[in-house]
Design a protein around this nucleic acid. Sequence first.
DNA 1: TTATTTTCTGTGGTATACCACATACCTAGA
DNA 2: TCTAGGTATGTGGTATACCACAGAAAATAA
Lengths: 238, 238
Amino acid sequence: MAIGAKLRPISESFTLKDHTFKLLRAAILEMDIYSPDTDLRLDERKLAESLGISRTPIREALARLAQEELVHIVPRKGVFVCRKTREEILEMVVTWAALESMAARLATVYASDSDLLALRKFAMQHSSDAVRADIEEYSDANIKFHQKILELSGCSLLGSTAEGLFIHMQAIRRRAMGEGDRALKSVVDHMEIIEALLARDADLAADRVREHTMRLHVHISKTWVRLETIGSLKIAVG
Amino acid sequence: MAIGAKLRPISESFTLKDHTFKLLRAAILEMDIYSPDTDLRLDERKLAESLGISRTPIREALARLAQEELVHIVPRKGVFVCRKTREEILEMVVTWAALESMAARLATVYASDSDLLALRKFAMQHSSDAVRADIEEYSDANIKFHQKILELSGCSLLGSTAEGLFIHMQAIRRRAMGEGDRALKSVVDHMEIIEALLARDADLAADRVREHTMRLHVHISKTWVRLETIGSLKIAVG
DNA sequence: TTATTTTCTGTGGTATACCACATACCTAGA
DNA sequence: TCTAGGTATGTGGTATACCACAGAAAATAA
């Protein structure tokens, strides 16, 4: 066989800036953003040095992150990971509810029975995690459940729009999950959602998804009173 | 009076890249993107020369536009304004419906009577444009109507999320408005929406907004068959 | 004439140098 | 000791030079 017969293009049109963008995005996702002692500062030059590249691709990646409102760039001050205030988080939950509710509505029309049954199977498999109070595990499954509904809508823009909120929703859901008996209630909600989907009842499915997410909204607005002061800690600049 | 008593900061932290970003965004908004003979190419160097600045701030502005999916950047090929395919446009309409529907729901709770009455006055003022078949005029008013509902929700994230779709929705609505007697039907729809809002009927308002926007969806999917081929004209690079 | 190779030109990608400004620290005068 | 004012340092912002690659044009071989 000739040399190169099975070689693929070097991941066609690989660019450092794209790579850096994904890298930083993932890094921010893993950060515990809301821990008060986390350093929110990103130093272009240090990043450049540790990645072994120049500042240019890093700056373009940061520009994109800023567009996603994941970081704040303050001229001649610095680049900071963006903490959200309590109000911003509440708005994200509302927006998420809007998107997922529409997704559920569409899913009653476009999702196949086998997809929905697979979703039910998935939800049932992980319900035991909630019962065992295995919060970490269940929280991940919970997030995946909601993403799958977005997928099943067949409207990819709903999912990709929600993805911008996802990075924060993940942190929010993880935090909220451990509070009260939300995990157990969540299991019940999920099952009712799936039943509505399988019944192909668009209005009911949309309502249940929206109300489920809005319960998170109510929970947060009741419970998280201190976040706002933390959120505006160092960011209140420009 | 002491010197500087009335001086403001020099437009706090102005940067060329921000300015360029807004400039290009507005320029793209004004372009007739879907005209087949429009040049979709953006040349970094020519832009730099005509703006009298270097490529660097332009590149960062382009990076942000790419994040918003307003342009495609293809390494060593060029930067192109992003035409949307028919399917993508349909998804944008769905997503817009999701956001505005939720906004209407919230508006029944949070909008004041005076705000809603002002909205009704605004809609009635411009209904004559529709009757006179003054499409251009009415189309603008129509778009503003929908934006106001997003505002009245009190949830600014709904509006800012929708804004990313706005640039395309504007072109879509303008184009669709002239087709059939959509303008007249639109007037009726709007009035029914306002009545539902004033009646503080959350479900009804949400339903009417969603159905109104989804009528646009149906109209597009029925009428615009040729767009897809145009859309994927030069962009199908990947 | 046709097919192939080579060269040239233009593109975005990257690295680097330098700038203006913000900040913290230092120093001299009260 | 305390307070201006100056100075040093570090930040993101910008300009520039050069690179690798794509694609077209031109040159060459069949």
